[in-house]
């Protein structure tokens, strides 16, 4: 029973964070965060629900379904982070290039 309380508390904080996002520049992200965390709370209080959902998509147990979804999530995050790094790479390149050209050294000067 303690784990239910811990998870509920944590997920509630996430919902609150989503509410805060809702009223800032990223309302869509806030809505998504609230929805996911809210669904999490629902699953904590009704564990059989995940199994019923799993069965409808052809997975035996609810826990298995969660593991699969987690895998998809991580793979997507890895790709997103990589794309973000490439963007930073380009920014650094442009910055370094501009610095280098500004400080070009001409023969004869020291």
């Amino acid at each position: 029973m303690i784990i239910v309380l811990i998870l509920t508390g944590t997920l509630s904080l996430v919902v609150l964070y989503g509410v805060r996002l809702l009223f800032t520049a990223r309302p869509l992200v806030g809505g998504a965060v609230m929805a996911v965390a809210g669904a999490g709370i629902l699953l904590v209080w009704d564990p059989d629900l995940s199994t019923r959902i799993a069965n409808t998509v052809g997975v035996g147990r609810g826990t298995d379904l969660l593991v699969y979804l987690l895998f998809i999530l991580i793979a997507m995050l890895v790709l997103l982070v990589h794309a973000r790094f490439r963007t930073y790479d380009r920014m650094i390149t442009e910055l370094a290039r501009s610095v280098a050209i500004t400080h070009a050294r001409e023969p004869g000067e020291r």
Partner: peptide, 10 residues
């Protein structure tokens, strides 16, 4: 030669 130097290795 004219020399430009990258401030980091690119």
């Amino acid at each position: 030669a004219i020399v430009v130097r990258h401030p980091v290795n690119l």
